[in-house]
Simulated assay, not measured.
Amino acid sequence: MTGAVTAVWCDRCGEAADSGDHAACRRARELEPPRFCPKCRRRMKVQILPAGWTATCVEHGVRQS
């Protein structure tokens, strides 16, 4: 997926990106792939490979490291 993603949802915990403190989510995301689509909050299919990761949302496509 190309272009900037406007995050409405936290891609780690799935909660609203503008509510609460997501400092722990940001720290965790330095080491792990996203779990939720930041546009629609759907749980994504994540594949972790030695060279990186891919996360696929059925609505918004693939994100990768």
Score class of each variant (00 low, 15 high):
Met1Arg: 04
Met1Gln: 09
Met1His: 12
Met1Leu: 12
Thr2Asp: 12
Thr2Pro: 00
Thr2Ala: 13
Gly3Ser: 06
Val5Ser: 10
Thr6Glu: 15
Thr6Tyr: 14
Ala7Gln: 10
Ala7Met: 12
Val8His: 12
Val8Thr: 12
Trp9Arg: 05
Trp9Thr: 04
Cys10Arg: 00
Arg12Lys: 08
Arg12Ser: 15
Cys13Thr: 07
Cys13Glu: 11
Glu15Asn: 12
Ala16Cys: 09
Ala16Gln: 09
Ala17Asp: 05
Ala17Lys: 05
Asp18Thr: 03
Gly20Glu: 04
Asp21Gln: 05
His22Arg: 04
His22Tyr: 01
Ala23Asp: 15
Ala24Gly: 12
Cys25Gln: 02
Cys25Trp: 02
Cys25Lys: 00
Cys25Met: 00
Arg26Ala: 15
Arg26Asp: 15
Arg27Gln: 13
Arg27Cys: 05
Ala28Ser: 10
Ala28Asp: 14
Arg29Ala: 14
Glu30Gln: 10
Leu31Asn: 13
Leu31Glu: 14
Leu31Met: 11
Glu32Val: 11
Glu32Phe: 14
Pro33Gly: 14
Pro33Lys: 01
Pro33Leu: 06
Pro33Tyr: 12
Pro34Thr: 05
Arg35His: 06
Phe36Asn: 02
Phe36Glu: 00
Pro38Phe: 02
Lys39Phe: 03
Cys40Tyr: 12
Arg41Met: 06
Arg42His: 12
Arg43Asp: 15
Arg43Thr: 13
Lys45Arg: 07
Lys45Ser: 14
Val46Met: 04
Val46Cys: 06
Ile48Gln: 11
Pro50Cys: 03
Pro50Arg: 03
Ala51Leu: 08
Ala51Thr: 11
Gly52Tyr: 08
Trp53Gly: 00
Trp53Gln: 03
Thr54Leu: 07
Thr56Phe: 04
Glu59Asn: 09
Glu59Trp: 05
His60Leu: 04
Gly61Phe: 07
Gly61Pro: 01
Gly61Ile: 02
Gly61Lys: 02
Val62Asn: 04
Gln64Leu: 02
Gln64Tyr: 07
Ser65Glu: 13
